[in-house]
Design a protein around this nucleic acid. Structure first.
Length: 346
DNA sequence: TATTCGTGGTC
DNA sequence: TGACCAAGAAT
């Protein structure tokens, strides 16, 4: 039996029951695909529920503010996804008269929609034969056909896309694309794949050559930077100070306490010499280090060594103030959220 | 085109 | 426990 047919049959009997699979509405499929980029289904489920309930149509999403959308995205990470989702919703409503794009080519024009997502929506909603290539597909194909070309090299990306595109030619695109992804997630897993009961085992070259654990091949070029964050938590009992992050780095457009970044851990004396305290005078202030041991927040490319400094003062000048009771209205990074959860109970 | 963008799970 | 991975995309 052909490759695609085995997967389609397997899918018929083993597919997962996921909320967006009850729909062919491109708006819902789009939401699910953006939420699931680089994200496990279990982690995305609650967010899918919130977004479909809070923004039942693309118009509702377009009418919301970015702050509102980011608040609902809080905790999921890769926040450009939320900003692009909101931007593209407005683009669809304003430029496309609310009509969702219906082809791979047009879907690609949406911010935040790349080759994978355009292929997924085009195949699932419009039956277009565009093969998805995600982490699951790389794994299944590299093993079954024993391909050791690095999946994150330009040649590898092109090669796997072309192979996937060949394999979908005689298939039902909607079912086949979801089949190979489910199969990769449930059977041909990164670790401990269940080769003993695998329906593709007979033709799997990597299994025959005992190469399963070494495929797929990925070039690793990850260097982690250490950064040192000092958050200034100003507190007069009722009010505090938070700022919106600008620029193009992490957590763009999320909120945080005023931040002093240093190139190494600093003590109180050194911290107080920073420009921040030259620009802002605190009368009768009392400063205390909240966490003597740094919280090390680990991101993919950076380790953030974080200290929270509490400034108790009755006189806060030259700041925009935020009431503690309203602090939960703002979208904050997980790191700040964790701090708030601890701090407000004290 | 190499780098950057979060958070959580797995072993 | 640190390395790897997760329905990738933008720059």
């Amino acid at each position: 039996m052909e490759f695609y047919k085995i997967l389609e049959m397997w899918y018929l009997n083993n597919k997962r029951n996921l909320p967006w699979r009850n729909s062919s509405n491109p708006y819902f499929i789009w939401l699910s695909e953006i939420i699931l980029q680089q994200t496990r289904i279990q982690q995305g489920l609650d967010y899918y529920k919130v977004f479909t309930e809070h923004y039942p149509t693309v118009q509702d999403l377009a009418n919301a503010s970015e702050d509102e959308v980011l608040k609902d995205w809080q905790g999921l990470g890769y926040y450009s996804r939320a900003r692009n989702l909101h931007f593209s919703a407005q683009y669809i409503c304003n430029e496309l008269n609310g009509k969702f794009p219906t082809t791979y080519k047009e879907l690609l024009k949406l911010k935040g929609v790349g080759d994978y997502t355009a292929s997924a929506i085009a195949s699932i909603c419009f039956n277009e034969k565009t093969a998805v290539v995600d982490g699951n597909v790389y794994r299944v194909l590299s093993r079954y056909f024993n391909i050791d070309m690095p999946i994150n090299s330009p040649k590898g990306i092109k090669y796997f896309k072309e192979l996937a595109q060949e394999l979908i030619q005689n298939a039902h695109p909607k079912e086949y694309n979801q089949a190979i992804m489910d199969f990769g997630a449930m059977v041909c897993k990164p670790q401990n794949p269940t080769c003993e009961t695998c329906v593709l085992a007979d033709g799997c070259i990597a299994k025959a050559k005992n190469l399963i654990s070494s495929l797929p091949v990925k070039e690793k070029k990850l260097k982690v930077k250490n950064k040192f964050f000092n958050f200034i938590v100003i507190d007069n009992g009722d009010l505090t100070v938070i700022e919106k992050r600008t620029g193009n780095g992490i957590w763009k457009n999320l909120y945080q306490f005023p931040l002093i970044e240093t190139n190494k851990p600093v003590d109180e004396e050194t911290l107080l010499k920073h420009d921040f305290f030259k620009n802002h005078e605190f009368k009768n202030m009392d400063i205390a280090l909240y966490n003597p041991e740094p919280w090390i927040h680990k991101l993919t490319h950076q380790h953030l060594h974080t200290h929270f400094w509490i400034i108790n003062t009755k006189h806060i000048e030259n700041f925009e103030l935020t009431a503690w009771k309203n602090i939960d209205d703002f979208a904050v990074p997980k790191l700040i959220h964790n701090f708030l959860e601890e701090y407000k109970t004290k």
